[in-house]
Simulated assay, not measured.
Amino acid sequence: MDIKKLFFIPLFIGLAACCFKAAAATVDTVLTHSTAMNKDIKAVVIKPADYSNTKKFPVLYLLHGFSGNYSDWIKKVPAVAGLADTYHFIVVCADGDFAGWYFDSSIVKDSQYETYVGTELVNWVDKHYSTITDRKGRAITGLSMGGHGALFLAFKHLDKFGAAGSMSGAVDIRPFPDSFGIERVLGKYSEHPDRWEQNSVVNLIYLLKPNSLAITFDVGYDDFLYQANQELHEKLLERKVPHDYTVRPGAHTWEFWGNSINYQALFFSRFFNGIK
């Protein structure tokens, strides 16, 4: 083989690798502030490679599950950074505390995560990054507790989010009166059933009108939350609220969520680009 060709091959590979590295998304851990809770809270912000202050970018808010934190997604599914590059949006991995459930608790003063994620964090991101500052440029999704949180926040804050998703979401919290720390923020179900009823996603569909929110959610057939997601799907059908709902093989695992986020990212990209 021609020696010039042998030299060219590794040189080309090296240049390609350098170009790929230069085009990678930027992953930052930032310190935000919650006035409602009077404390600083960390978040991960992923900027696409083509990020620029001269252009406005849509934002996908990504929520973690029970016992997790803001860093879960980027640690467990590093490919999320590549999705920011592929679809040219900013990804913000928010913190919802170990078991904050993205509620504003009436009994725990430093657990006001509806206000924090739904208002304070959104305002902080819009102030510090070049974003589309209306609901047409915002989407929110998450896994398990975060799947509940994403739909809960979007249903209640239609002025902030134009699209929402859930992966294996705990969309009905009532079956878990003694689990996952929910009673810490809502009180015991036996003593405050109204709080549990009012904060279950399946009971908040009345807040939606057809086409008021772009919705996608999925669950594994072997997931212990399968039945609750099926019920949410049926209730949305009854009220004629358009949505994408997918059941795939799988359980309550990172393998499932790492696969799911690829489909949801495409869904949100189409929303951001006005594709129905």
Rank of each mutant, 00 (worst) to 15 (best):
A79Q: 15
G82M: 05
D85M: 04
V92I: 06
K127T: 07
K109V: 05
N123F: 12
S105P: 12
I107W: 10
G100E: 01
S106F: 10
G96R: 14
Y102W: 08
S130D: 00
S106I: 14
Y87N: 13
K109N: 10
V80D: 04
T86L: 11
V108T: 11
Y87M: 08
V117P: 03
Y129F: 04
K127A: 05
Y116W: 06
D126W: 05
W124F: 04
T119E: 05
Y116Q: 02
T86K: 14
Y102T: 13
V108M: 14
Y129S: 02
K75I: 09
S111C: 13
V80F: 14
G82A: 11
K127M: 03
I132P: 01
I107S: 13
V91F: 15
Q112T: 07
I107N: 12
K76L: 12
A99I: 10
D110W: 13
K75C: 07
N123A: 15
V80G: 10
K109D: 10
K75M: 15
S130V: 02
A79W: 07
F98W: 08
T119D: 05
T131G: 03
T133Q: 09
G118K: 08
S105C: 13
A84I: 01
K76M: 14
G82D: 10
V92F: 02
V122M: 00
W124N: 00
D85K: 01
V77G: 00
H88T: 11
T86D: 07
W101T: 12
V122G: 01
K76T: 15
I74P: 10
E120G: 05
A84H: 01
V77W: 12
Y129A: 04
D95I: 01
Y116M: 02
D104E: 15
H88I: 04
S111T: 12
N123W: 12
A81H: 05
A99R: 10
Y116D: 01
A81V: 09
H128N: 14
K109C: 01
I90V: 05
A99S: 11
V91D: 05
K76W: 12
V117E: 04
V117I: 06
S130E: 01
I132S: 06
A79F: 13
Y87R: 09
Y87C: 09
A84C: 05
A99G: 08
S130M: 00
S105W: 15
N123L: 08
Y116H: 06
V125G: 00
G118R: 07
W124K: 00
F89Q: 00
